[in-house]
């Protein structure tokens, strides 16, 4: 069972507990109650479908942050057997909030890069809660340039509450590091696929998010600011995060409707953490298909289409 149960999941958990009890009872008493058990199972499935298909935007944000969700390294190790992690930005240090390295996926070498969160308190601190410093973005860029040199496609996994707001981060040019990545990624001469696997908060997410395909898992979000920070700035209080989440239109579905992403990858019922193997299967299928598609496009056209995609984003009127 999940280590954290969200408010809206409680009715499901209650029924599931009831089911466990009934099954135990059936076993102990040798009574045939398979009928009612089946009925309850169907009821639970229906409730799950209703719940997870009708989540509010804020509830999706909660799901995207579920501590049991797979993180970048879970996906990377799940997708390939020979992953070699590569460290360091060659200037300052190795940022633990962004990981990267080569691995074989479906017979070809791919450069995987992604934000990395930690699971327990110690790991969370070690990974700085998935909030990179400038050297994280510079490591990512170094690895992308490496992939470009050896003509390997790049796959990035986005999952960050934001770039780290700290003194050293500013001293070492957080803004410049992100800007440089946007600039370089827009003309990188190999295919880039970016996948939001959890939180896509602002520039910290976009810093590894300029690609030929930008995809989002079903229960993730992508926005210019987190709902909490938006609430504190626009409403001057932390209490409006649910309204802020609605206003920001930050879910995968919203982003696809706004034509800011290229597709959504379906999650198992209840979220990626409920069935990591099922999630991996969906991801593998989409990734394989997209990489094959991009491989067919010649490099000049690829880069031109990428630039065209991002430079046509925006809605305005002429008076």
């Amino acid at each position: 069972m999940a280590s954290v149960i969200l408010d809206f999941e409680k009715p499901i958990i209650e029924l599931e507990e009831k089911l466990t009890l009934m099954k135990k009872m059936a076993e102990e008493s040798k009574l045939d109650i398979s009928g009612p058990i089946k009925e309850l199972e169907a009821k639970i499935l229906q409730l799950k479908k209703n719940t997870y298909q009708n989540l509010t935007r804020w509830q999706r944000v909660q799901l995207s942050r579920h501590p049991d969700r797979p993180y970048t390294l879970d996906y990377v190790y799940g997708l390939c057997t020979d992953f070699v992690e590569l460290h360091g930005d060659r200037h300052i240090k190795d940022d633990k909030a962004i990981i990267g390295g080569f691995g074989t996926f479906e017979g070809q070498t791919v450069m995987f890069i992604g934000h990395q969160k930690g699971r327990d308190i110690k790991q969370r601190q070690y990974r700085n809660f998935g909030m990179p410093n400038p050297e994280g973005y510079r490591k990512a860029l170094r690895l992308m340039k490496l992939a470009e040199k050896f003509n390997k496609p790049v796959v990035t996994f986005i999952d960050t509450p934001g770039a780290y707001p700290g003194i050293e981060a500013e001293e070492r040019g957080q803004g410049e590091a992100i800007a440089r990545n946007l600039f370089e990624m827009s003309t990188l001469r190999v295919p880039i696929i970016c996948i939001v696997i959890g939180e896509g908060a602002s520039g910290g997410a976009l810093g590894i998010g300029v690609g030929d395909r930008v995809l989002m898992l079903e229960n993730t979000w992508y926005s210019v600011i987190s709902p909490e920070s938006c609430s504190s700035i626009l409403w001057r209080s932390w209490d409006y995060k649910e309204q802020a989440a609605e206003a920001l239109r930050l879910t995968a579905k919203d982003m696809l409707e706004l034509k800011l992403i290229d597709g959504i990858i379906k999650e198992p019922l209840g979220g990626a953490h409920q069935d990591p193997q099922g999630m991996l299967k969906n991801l593998r299928k989409v990734l394989k298909h997209q990489l094959a598609e991009l491989k067919e496009i010649d490099t000049d056209t690829l880069v031109q289409q990428r630039i065209q995609k991002f430079t046509s984003m925006g809605v305005f009127a002429t008076e």
Binding site: E184, G203, V210, V224, I225, L248, L260, F310, T311, M313
Partner: peptide, 26 residues
């Protein structure tokens, strides 16, 4: 910074302007 009222649309202007400057650089 980016304008909150246009949410991710504003965020993507960062990528848009940077990509444009990459073309200028070329």
């Amino acid at each position: 910074g980016a304008r909150m009222m246009e949410s991710a649309m504003s965020l993507m202007q960062m990528a848009k302007t940077s990509a444009k400057l990459a073309i200028l650089a070329q």
